[in-house]
Nucleic acid binder design. Sequence first.
RNA 1: GCCCCUGUAGCCCAAUCGGUUAGAGGCACACGACUUAAAAUCGUGCCAGUGUGGGUUCAAGUCCCACCAGGGGUACCA
Length: 825
Amino acid sequence: MSEQSQLDPNTYDVHGVQDKWLPVWDELAPFKSGRADDARPTKYVLDMFPYPSGDLHMGHAEAYALGDVIARYWVHQGFNVLHPIGWDAFGLPAENAAIKRGENPQTWTYENIEMQKSSMRRYACSFDWDRVMNTCDPAYYKWNQWLFLKMYERGLAYRKDSAVNWCPSCQTVLANEQVVGGLCERCDSAVTKKKLNQWYFKITDYADRLLDDMSQLEGQWPEKVLLMQRNWIGRSKGAEVSFEIEGRAEPVVVYTTRPDTLFGATFFVVAADSDLASELATGTESEVAFNEYLEGVKAISEMDRLATDRPKSGVFLNRYAINPVNGERIQIWASDYVLADYGTGAIMAVPAHDQRDLDFAKKFDLPIRVVVESETDPAVTGQATADDGAHINSGPLDGLGKHEGIEKMIEILAERKLGTPATNYRLRDWLISRQRYWGTPIPIIHCPSCGEVPVPLDQLPVLLPDASDLDLSPKGTSPLGAADEWANVPCPKCAQPARRDTDTMDTFVDSSWYYLRYLNPQLDTAPFETAEANKWLPVDQYVGGVTHAILHLLYSRFFTKVLFDMGMVNFEEPFTRLLNQGMVVMDGSAMSKSRGNLVRLSDELADNGVDAIRLTMVFAGPPEDDVDWADVSPHGAKKFLARAWRLSGDVTSAPDVDFANGDLTLRKATHRAVADAQLAVETYRFNVAVARTMELVNVTRKAIDTGCGGADPAVREATQAVAIMLSLVAPYTSEEMWERLGHQPPMALAPWPIVDPGLLVEDSVQCVVQVNGKIKERLEVSPNISQDELRELAMGQASVIAAIAGATPKVVVVRQPKLVNVVLG
RNA sequence: GCCCCUGUAGCCCAAUCGGUUAGAGGCACACGACUUAAAAUCGUGCCAGUGUGGGUUCAAGUCCCACCAGGGGUACCA
């Protein structure tokens, strides 16, 4: 009571309730999930953890408001909910900010984390604050290194030379996701390729499982995300076929999805930038022309390469391959339309049935042979035909359709040992090396005599050297390379002078397993405890932006499968349900300073308070849709909260009053509202749940003012239901209402109202009687009227008899209790 | 180019299974109350036939086909 006296009981004080309840919640810790004696069933709600670049913004406000609805709902439903938060704290922005301001990336990062943490507390996120962790803590990245070494042991971490994305301005490699339209996402320079020796995770070993296990996620993840992952993995089935090359001892293998069109292969193309192309060109009269062409190809920027309507180019190598099924001598060309790193880097070209091959054939006047019957002639129309049809000009395949043709050809090739069935993937291994400072050092030591030597597990973590002694500005090699004292160490095997690997890991490694670290963020003997993992995981509900639809979610799924194979977890998919929230935009476009449409979260919170902003986010529309701040009304949300709050002051019955004697109409409305809201929350229609709550507030207001009055027990029942439903989105208002209603905090732990099915049943429902679909009569009938009874009743109505006018009904459709339709001839 | 999603009042959005006269909620607007007045607040009210054209059905916002518009994904993957 002493606390309440600080607030004016007649005025809804937005900031007053925040200041009042925040310390109380800190004290009561209603969302603590680690108690050993907790017998409640478990749920794990996970929000994608934030990157600590400055304070929270509108996007965070939306995402965390949505995750909170689910977490708080499950708590009210009696679950022991694990809802943790941490920071994805390694990464380039910290390094860039440090370079710009001359600060230490570590200082910058931890300052931002503290700022975000305090904003989140005030925003009343239902996090378990005992489980906080940051990926840049040595206690965390130690286990990145441990996992890396376990992967290395299993042959899943390896080094290779490869052409990687390189930004000549930033002087660093870029991940695929940092190349936008061929340009560096930060400085807009044209990205080039550079051959470097880098570390990779062998995610391609898991391609089939990553693809096939998606069937478990069907219906639980957005269809769009599953589709994007399927496309990204890009499994295709076909065959590998050997072609003899004149003047070369070894045959060359090509991959094709259409082995049935082999009789239509009229030339052969190798990727211009492949080793094979150079080898075939060397010593021929085309060598000079080829080298010129290759230089030209290398000079083309990534951006230009992406142009789809680029004309085909290439050079004849003056070499010939032999078509294995018909013995034909076919020309070998080099071109950049064949990719060196997909399949075998060489193809059989079937111009009649592949558009790219046809474009090439027409440009260089190469032969075109139709082998699958179609109405149009590709050579004339310029359109390759890929439809099913009968094979022609194909010897033993003649007359067969596409599917049988493929099978038959594979059979023939196998018999003659010229080919085998084969599967190819678009997915590439995951390049994890970064030439950056602010990341996890790769725990490998390079020894001149022993080669790659893993850092012994008992010497982990390999700590980052102090940034203040290093030049972090981009210069094309890792800043760690300059830390000689750090890098020069004796080889763990032979004790001779050796050198640490100076690259750091991609930060996607950090986020691939953080959901397991929350179980025991302080644990010093393992990344996590298997028993705890099997108790809490897989995550029941994951919430985050669709921007991570492919990379983060694919990598996390990969890690989980590796951990499963290592026997460390007993599940193979980490996230059971996934919700992708939309973005917060302004006037239809993404907010940005340069556009001048930035809405500051701190301003919005100051004007309307935490609850109103959370409510606005949730009520704006379906959670997957973008919230356009121009279309919503935080002020309206605040008004509604005041309206709801006012109810709690008008309830005059005692807290323990028996609802059974309350006004029946209001009781029914309450139970209907709770039942609807419950269903809406469970099906992600949070905006609808809010609308139901608003409706109940309106009905209760009327009951108090012009109906049964504030003393009726039903008014208390309704108002308490409002408070609980509201606690999913507006925890401060809800807690305040709960106290005014005579209850103890924390209201977050109050049980969800139990719906009485008896109160959902109506005494009577309206039934329409149609004749030929036109409404002739409305009847009040019992909800459990029988089909025959209703038919009889309807057919007896004067208006219906008049409308039928003596005709014989063709059919009478009865959908009791709501509809009868009499259909005349 | 290919693939996917979405089109409901001025605006944001609702509408288990196909089933009453499409409307739960909100914004905006109009009017009324309060006020010297205005703002704020409270109350009352208003508006579309579901992008277009076909089809299936006794019955279509809901299912099917085509087109149009908007949004997203992808980029020569053989």
